Simulated scan of single mutants.
Amino acid sequence: MAQTVKINVTVNGKQYEREVEPRLLLSDFIRHDLGLTGTHVGCEHGLCGACTVLMDGEAVRSCTIFAVQADGHEIQTVESLGTPDNLHPIQQAFIEKHALQCGFCTPGFLMTLVDYLGDNPNPTEEEIREAIDGNFCRCTGYFNIIEAVKLAAQKMASH
Protein backbone atom coordinates (compact mmCIF):
# COMPACT_ATOMS: atom_id res chain seq x y z
CA MET A 1 0.00 0.00 0.00
CA ALA A 2 1.30 3.44 -0.92
CA GLN A 3 2.15 5.98 1.76
CA THR A 4 -0.54 8.62 2.25
CA VAL A 5 -0.63 12.04 3.85
CA LYS A 6 -3.64 13.67 5.48
CA ILE A 7 -4.55 17.05 4.01
CA ASN A 8 -7.16 19.63 4.92
CA VAL A 9 -8.12 21.90 2.07
CA THR A 10 -11.02 24.23 1.39
CA VAL A 11 -12.33 24.00 -2.17
CA ASN A 12 -15.03 26.40 -3.31
CA GLY A 13 -15.86 27.20 0.30
CA LYS A 14 -16.20 23.57 1.43
CA GLN A 15 -13.69 21.96 3.80
CA TYR A 16 -12.23 18.59 2.81
CA GLU A 17 -10.05 16.23 4.81
CA ARG A 18 -8.51 13.48 2.73
CA GLU A 19 -5.69 10.96 2.74
CA VAL A 20 -3.68 11.37 -0.47
CA GLU A 21 -0.51 9.98 -1.96
CA PRO A 22 2.28 12.56 -1.81
CA ARG A 23 2.68 12.50 -5.61
CA LEU A 24 -1.01 13.17 -6.38
CA LEU A 25 -1.36 16.32 -8.47
CA LEU A 26 -3.77 19.00 -7.33
CA SER A 27 -5.52 18.80 -10.71
CA ASP A 28 -6.12 15.07 -10.25
CA PHE A 29 -7.27 15.59 -6.66
CA ILE A 30 -9.78 18.22 -7.80
CA ARG A 31 -11.07 16.18 -10.74
CA HIS A 32 -10.94 12.61 -9.45
CA ASP A 33 -11.14 12.81 -5.66
CA LEU A 34 -13.58 15.73 -5.46
CA GLY A 35 -15.42 15.18 -8.76
CA LEU A 36 -15.03 18.81 -9.87
CA THR A 37 -14.39 18.25 -13.56
CA GLY A 38 -14.47 21.90 -14.63
CA THR A 39 -10.71 22.05 -14.09
CA HIS A 40 -9.27 20.65 -17.30
CA VAL A 41 -5.89 19.04 -17.84
CA GLY A 42 -4.22 19.74 -21.16
CA CYS A 43 -0.45 19.64 -21.39
CA GLU A 44 0.28 18.35 -17.86
CA HIS A 45 3.34 20.65 -17.74
CA GLY A 46 1.78 23.97 -16.70
CA LEU A 47 2.16 25.51 -20.15
CA CYS A 48 -1.37 25.58 -21.57
CA GLY A 49 -3.28 27.08 -18.63
CA ALA A 50 -6.30 24.77 -18.89
CA CYS A 51 -5.85 23.59 -15.29
CA THR A 52 -5.70 27.07 -13.75
CA VAL A 53 -7.39 27.45 -10.36
CA LEU A 54 -7.08 30.04 -7.63
CA MET A 55 -5.04 29.16 -4.56
CA ASP A 56 -5.57 31.72 -1.81
CA GLY A 57 -6.89 34.05 -4.51
CA GLU A 58 -3.96 33.73 -6.92
CA ALA A 59 -4.03 31.90 -10.25
CA VAL A 60 -1.92 28.73 -10.24
CA ARG A 61 -1.47 25.77 -12.55
CA SER A 62 -2.97 22.83 -10.68
CA CYS A 63 -1.09 20.28 -12.79
CA THR A 64 2.23 21.54 -11.40
CA ILE A 65 1.25 21.45 -7.72
CA PHE A 66 0.89 18.41 -5.53
CA ALA A 67 -2.31 18.08 -3.52
CA VAL A 68 -0.22 17.97 -0.33
CA GLN A 69 1.02 21.49 -1.16
CA ALA A 70 -2.60 22.68 -0.99
CA ASP A 71 -2.91 21.54 2.62
CA GLY A 72 -4.33 24.42 4.66
CA HIS A 73 -5.09 26.52 1.59
CA GLU A 74 -8.24 27.85 -0.07
CA ILE A 75 -8.78 26.63 -3.64
CA GLN A 76 -11.35 28.02 -6.05
CA THR A 77 -12.25 26.21 -9.24
CA VAL A 78 -14.39 27.38 -12.14
CA GLU A 79 -17.38 25.81 -10.40
CA SER A 80 -17.15 28.58 -7.78
CA LEU A 81 -17.70 31.45 -10.22
CA GLY A 82 -21.42 31.54 -10.75
CA THR A 83 -24.60 29.61 -11.31
CA PRO A 84 -26.64 29.18 -14.51
CA ASP A 85 -29.06 31.80 -13.16
CA ASN A 86 -26.37 34.17 -11.88
CA LEU A 87 -23.21 34.02 -13.96
CA HIS A 88 -20.01 35.76 -12.94
CA PRO A 89 -19.39 38.84 -15.15
CA ILE A 90 -16.45 37.13 -16.87
CA GLN A 91 -18.65 34.12 -17.72
CA GLN A 92 -21.39 36.39 -19.05
CA ALA A 93 -18.89 38.39 -21.10
CA PHE A 94 -17.46 35.20 -22.65
CA ILE A 95 -20.97 34.27 -23.76
CA GLU A 96 -21.89 37.74 -25.03
CA LYS A 97 -18.64 38.15 -26.99
CA HIS A 98 -18.57 34.55 -28.30
CA ALA A 99 -15.18 34.02 -26.65
CA LEU A 100 -15.33 30.25 -26.61
CA GLN A 101 -15.77 27.52 -29.13
CA CYS A 102 -14.94 24.02 -27.96
CA GLY A 103 -14.67 25.30 -24.37
CA PHE A 104 -11.77 23.12 -23.27
CA CYS A 105 -9.52 26.08 -22.44
CA THR A 106 -12.32 28.28 -21.08
CA PRO A 107 -12.14 27.33 -17.36
CA GLY A 108 -8.43 28.14 -17.30
CA PHE A 109 -9.00 31.47 -19.02
CA LEU A 110 -11.83 32.33 -16.63
CA MET A 111 -9.81 31.60 -13.52
CA THR A 112 -6.75 33.43 -14.86
CA LEU A 113 -8.91 36.45 -15.64
CA VAL A 114 -10.79 36.50 -12.34
CA ASP A 115 -7.44 36.87 -10.58
CA TYR A 116 -6.13 39.33 -13.16
CA LEU A 117 -9.18 41.61 -13.20
CA GLY A 118 -9.16 41.64 -9.41
CA ASP A 119 -5.67 43.16 -9.56
CA ASN A 120 -6.17 45.27 -12.70
CA PRO A 121 -9.83 46.29 -13.09
CA ASN A 122 -9.22 48.57 -16.09
CA PRO A 123 -6.68 46.86 -18.36
CA THR A 124 -5.51 48.03 -21.75
CA GLU A 125 -5.66 45.64 -24.68
CA GLU A 126 -1.89 45.13 -24.45
CA GLU A 127 -2.20 44.31 -20.73
CA ILE A 128 -4.97 41.81 -21.49
CA ARG A 129 -2.78 40.14 -24.11
CA GLU A 130 0.02 39.84 -21.56
CA ALA A 131 -2.37 38.48 -18.91
CA ILE A 132 -3.60 35.66 -21.15
CA ASP A 133 -0.20 34.93 -22.67
CA GLY A 134 0.06 31.67 -20.71
CA ASN A 135 -3.36 30.34 -21.71
CA PHE A 136 -3.62 28.53 -25.02
CA CYS A 137 -6.71 28.31 -27.19
CA ARG A 138 -6.69 26.34 -30.42
CA CYS A 139 -10.10 27.54 -31.63
CA THR A 140 -10.82 31.23 -31.18
CA GLY A 141 -7.86 33.27 -32.39
CA TYR A 142 -8.09 35.24 -29.09
CA PHE A 143 -9.83 38.34 -30.53
CA ASN A 144 -13.18 37.56 -28.92
CA ILE A 145 -11.48 36.58 -25.66
CA ILE A 146 -9.84 40.01 -25.50
CA GLU A 147 -13.19 41.66 -26.25
CA ALA A 148 -14.80 39.57 -23.50
CA VAL A 149 -12.19 40.70 -20.99
CA LYS A 150 -12.85 44.34 -21.88
CA LEU A 151 -16.60 43.78 -21.40
CA ALA A 152 -16.09 41.88 -18.14
CA ALA A 153 -13.96 44.72 -16.78
CA GLN A 154 -16.80 47.14 -17.55
CA LYS A 155 -19.39 44.81 -15.97
CA MET A 156 -17.29 44.33 -12.85
CA ALA A 157 -16.68 48.07 -12.50
CA SER A 158 -20.42 48.74 -12.55
CA HIS A 159 -21.16 46.21 -9.77
Rank of each mutant, 00 (worst) to 15 (best):
A2L: 12
T4D: 05
I7R: 07
I7W: 07
V9A: 08
T10W: 01
N12L: 03
G13R: 11
K14P: 00
R18T: 03
V20R: 03
P22D: 10
P22K: 07
L25M: 15
L26C: 07
S27A: 15
D28T: 12
H32T: 09
T37H: 11
T39N: 06
H40F: 01
H40E: 08
H40I: 01
C43D: 04
E44N: 15
C48N: 05
A50M: 04
L54R: 15
M55L: 14
D56R: 06
G57W: 10
R61M: 10
S62F: 04
S62C: 07
T64N: 12
V68N: 10
D71K: 08
G72N: 10
G72D: 09
S80E: 01
H98L: 09
C105A: 12
T106W: 05
G108N: 01
M111E: 11
M111S: 08
T112Y: 01
Y116V: 04
L117A: 03
G118R: 09
D119M: 13
N120E: 14
R129Q: 15
A131S: 14
I132H: 09
N135A: 10
F136C: 01
R138F: 08
R138I: 11
R138L: 10
C139E: 07
T140F: 09
N144W: 01
E147A: 14
K150M: 13
K150L: 13
K150V: 13
A153F: 03
A157H: 03
A157F: 03
S158D: 13
H159M: 14
